[in-house]
Write a protein that binds this DNA or RNA. Structure first.
Lengths: 180, 180
DNA sequence: TCAAAAAAACCGACTAGTCGGTATAGTGGC
DNA sequence: GCCACTATACCGACTAGTCGGTTTTTTTGA
């Protein structure tokens, strides 16, 4: 039996989920509290301001990225493959959190922007260690971003057809044939 | 001598620019009006509501995409190359407009979402006609999306390093070596 | 040709409603 | 008794949209 998630955890998740599915404007204090199943007073008890809530979201992303980097470092031979494929997992805690922070960044939230920049730098470095060829790393990261971007639009409403895992498989195979 | 852009044109551009550089929240009627050099009353004279302004933005995107598709159809052999490279041109009217509509889509604006879906379907079809290999088309489009996504984050604040044209050149050459 | 009338473009104060944040009295469980 | 809340009320800042009125441009008819 796992613990039921704490109220604090639920509040951060509620904020994250509303950001992802409805955008920054809909993420009001009351909407967040309601989704987490507490009153507005309950929210402000744990987070005195929206900025504190955002800061908590940033911390969550940092630790999730840390864990992701550790996985990639643990098996460099599969790092690139892992990076591309995990971009597809829109439901994973990391991707959802990343998407939420991206929404804030696009709303010109400087902290969110800097955090994303740091994360991307770290992914780049780990991929460089694993792959060793700068252009290939750029290719892998751009591809991952593309998959991620597509997924993030699919998530909100209706995209032509979701990029399905089988297609990604074949694409990964295609770029696997590149000799550099 | 070209005409000075009309107030209507300036208002749509102002809306678009604020969406791109500061996000949906900052795109208030007054901010839009101020950027276009008119008063709030002047804005509401031309657009009775924010939705009408958004509708005008959607129409602009449609006609820009139409023109882009025509270019691609006119020289199928360079269509894929053109698609990838034009994703980099963040300052072009098409990319700016596309970015603005994307911001609205991420704020869960259903119309924006459907429009983007239609555009992407059209691009896909034109690329399919030009390239003829479905996985390669997906690869090209995902790569374009990745470049575009990167550029859109760079635009708002600070990304590690902008994807520069020389890197894109080399990446295009890399995927050009793929035999399918 | 030119003044008067009409239409179009625009201004800015106002209304009604929303949101972030503060405050406070009360409740159930450990 | 105190922690983790609920419920409600409130404030100030801000926002979309309205409206009466003003300025600018265009049209018209003598």
């Amino acid at each position: 039996m796992g613990h039921a998630p704490s109220t604090v955890h639920r509040l951060i998740t509620a904020y994250q989920d509303i950001l992802v599915s409805e955008g920054e404007r809909s993420a009001t204090l009351e909407a967040i509290a309601a989704r987490a199943g507490v009153s507005k007073g309950g929210l402000t008890y744990h987070f005195r301001s929206k900025d504190e809530l955002a800061a908590a979201l940033f911390e969550r992303l940092q630790s999730l990225v840390e864990a992701d980097l550790a996985v990639m470092r643990s098996d460099p031979s599969r790092a690139a493959d892992y990076y591309i494929r995990s971009s597809l997992e829109v439901e994973s805690p990391l991707e959802r959190c990343n998407m939420a922070v991206t929404r804030l960044a696009q709303g010109s939230h400087p902290e969110a922007n800097e955090l994303l920049a740091r994360c991307r730098t770290q992914w780049f470095e780990v991929l460089m260690d694993a792959v060793g060829h700068e252009d290939m790393v750029h290719l892998v990261m751009l591809l991952g971003d593309g998959i991620y971007f597509n997924a993030s639009l699919t998530g909100t409403g209706a995209m032509p057809e979701e990029t399905d895992p089988a297609t990604i498989d074949r694409i990964v195979r295609l770029i696997g044939t590149i000799r550099y």
